[in-house]
Simulated scan of single mutants.
Amino acid sequence: MKRKIYVAYGSNMDLAQMAYRCPQAKLLGKGLMKDWQLLFKGSQTGSYATIEQAGNHEVPVLLWEISRSDEARLNVYEGYPKFYYKKTVQVKTENGLVTGMVYIMHEERETGIPSAEYYDVLEQAYKEFGFDLKILQEACRVSHDKSRQNM
């Protein structure tokens, strides 16, 4: 069974949701994506986490080892390839750089504000894994400011 490393920065940092979505996934640890920024963008169903390249920013992530069937389930959940696309990225971990696959929302999507329920899932994961809550809060603020500019 071929497995790959999946980089999660949104609701797939929630252990229970990930266990449900990807029953064969194994949590490998955490890391940071340097020169990437967390944002919220959306569709008609709401605003969700995404990342964009941006100097002097970083995004905390979890690294998962996933199977092909886990990836197939993630493809459906993430709306791949229409809503999110895949990219190979480098993640800084305490043991050095790790290469993995990440889902990124198409850049032309408009920024927006996540639902309180969705934000709470991310906030809980940030607390559970010791991530800097300021990154999550800034993502909300920046996404809100950009969405107001687009009105």
Rank of each mutant, 00 (worst) to 15 (best):
P114C: 12
H144S: 11
V121E: 01
F40E: 02
V76I: 15
T50G: 09
L136Y: 01
E71Q: 12
D120E: 11
I51P: 02
Y20M: 12
N12I: 08
S69V: 04
V7M: 09
G55R: 10
Y9D: 04
Y6Q: 08
P114V: 09
Q24M: 10
M101T: 15
L133N: 03
K82T: 09
I5R: 13
F83M: 07
Y48T: 03
Y20I: 13
R148M: 15
S69R: 02
G46I: 01
G31K: 02
M18E: 02
E78G: 05
G100M: 06
G100R: 02
K82R: 12
P60H: 00
S69H: 05
E71A: 11
D145T: 05
N75T: 01
S147N: 07
G29W: 03
N56D: 15
L133R: 06
Y103V: 06
K4P: 04
C22E: 02
I5V: 15
K30D: 01
A25C: 12
V98W: 02
K86Y: 10
P81D: 09
G79V: 09
Q24W: 08
L27E: 04
P23D: 10
E52Y: 13
T99W: 04
V91K: 03
S67E: 02
E123W: 00
Q149E: 15
A16Q: 15
K2D: 13
F131I: 04
G10C: 07
A19W: 02
G31I: 04
A16K: 15
Q137W: 10
S11G: 12
L122H: 01
D14R: 08
R141H: 04
E107C: 07
M18V: 03
T50C: 12
E71Y: 09
N95V: 08
L133P: 05
K41T: 06
S69A: 03
N75V: 04
W64V: 01
W36Q: 06
D70W: 00
G96T: 10
M13S: 04
P60S: 06
R68E: 09
S11I: 04
M151S: 14
E117W: 05
E107H: 12
L15F: 15
M151P: 08
V76D: 10
G96V: 11
L74T: 00
P81S: 07
G96R: 10
E110W: 07
E71K: 09
I5H: 11
A72G: 00
G112A: 09
Q137H: 13
E78V: 05
Y126N: 00
V91Q: 02
R109C: 13
G79N: 07
E108V: 10
C140V: 14
M1A: 14
R141I: 05
Y84H: 14
K26S: 15
T111R: 13
G31N: 06
A54G: 00
L97E: 14
N56W: 14
L62T: 00
G112V: 06
L15Q: 14
Y85R: 15
R109N: 13
